[in-house]
Design a protein around this nucleic acid. Structure first.
Lengths: 192, 192
DNA sequence: GACGATATGGAAGGACCATTCCAGATGTCA
DNA sequence: TGACATCTGGAATGGTCCTTCCATATCGTC
């Protein structure tokens, strides 16, 4: 389902497009701040719209959340791609981990279980992110910066869960994040 | 407010005591399995009681959850205490971490944010657990098994969050848990 | 500028859930 | 065994929230 479907359905009215955008931005901001418990009513008020309008623009609240989270993930994916261009693979991985922690700490909704929630857009972005992260890890491994006695997919899962955890803990101070990344990177070094 | 208050109020009736126990056991089991979203009605049905009876036995659903989670934590605290008696501090810490992961993986509710939930009983148990864990970490540190360039409270927080994260990830396979503990323990070793 | 298609939002609908009520059942104690 | 305080659970209550309705407003086009 792409944004425009020329030939069959008429294009949506300009105000509908604008309102959809307003709703999405409001949702992104509030979901990041307060998580998935924000009510549609709250999102609508922030966007300066009626609750009915917000829901109608996406079909259901769940679809709105899906779209908003997917949108939030976009810049993170882009920055992970940028890290792939850095010359030092180990430094790139370290930088990415720190960014991941910062991102998750700044986006409350990222730390919520979304059990059984139909979220195709979010799932696709997560897959993309995982792919880029695997690239970073693989590159560090090829460069000899990561031990090979542990399966690479295990390392990938581990880093994902673990940055999540650190981000979630209290205030996720830079000190804690730094110490954590140091410990894990050291632990991942090939054993002498 | 202690369980018995002799001299003032009469002791509770035997059936009330028994039903409270049934409700608590049902709650423990269901909370571990499905998390805090289980309804009072579900717990009541499992316990073979009416929903009103279950709520009345604890005052509110939140109080019931608090009591149940506190109860679930008890055996874990006991086993952590046992680990303190092991001769090798590093091995004791490692064993405790593995147990912690297994415990959290087996108890869904342990991985839920309980934001703003009044939970004095649970808070007390968590404090106890943290104390024992600090003992384990401190002992390993004194034995020279843990680097000293990272603040010990940071290490404590880190290990807590991080076992949580690993437990939460998918099925928390023993393989993943083992790899994770290995990496973190290696990363925590004093740098050569 | 006018007309039809589309969009809006306040209000109503409907689902879910913790908690309270109360009439009847059950334990407790003399 | 009888009297009475306590306890029980089905039903009622009150609250929250997503979603749908529909009369009104706005847009797009001719």
């Amino acid at each position: 389902m792409s944004t425009s479907d020329p030939g069959q359905t008429r294009p949506r009215r300009a105000d509908a497009v604008r309102n959809r955008h307003l709703a999405l931005e409001a949702a992104k901001s509030l979901l990041a701040q307060r998580g998935a418990t924000v009510t549609v009513e709250t999102i609508a008020r922030r966007a300066g719209l009626g609750a009915a309008t917000v829901v109608r623009a996406f079909g259901t609240k769940d679809a709105l959340v899906d779209a908003a989270v997917a949108d939030l993930l976009d810049p993170l994916i882009r920055r992970a791609g940028d890290a792939l261009a850095l010359p030092d693979p180990a430094a790139a991985l370290r930088a990415f981990l720190l960014e991941l922690i910062e991102f998750q700490a700044a986006h409350w909704i990222m730390s919520e279980r979304v059990e059984g929630l139909e979220a195709p857009l979010t799932a696709a972005r997560r897959a993309e992110l995982r792919k880029v992260a695997s690239g970073l890890i693989g590159r560090a491994r090829e460069a000899g910066a990561i031990r090979t006695d542990i399966d690479m997919t295990v390392v990938t899962v581990m880093l994902g869960e673990v940055t999540y955890a650190i981000a979630r803990s209290g205030e996720a101070s830079p000190e804690l994040a730094g110490a954590f990344v140091t410990v894990v990177m050291d632990g991942l070094r090939p054993r002498p």
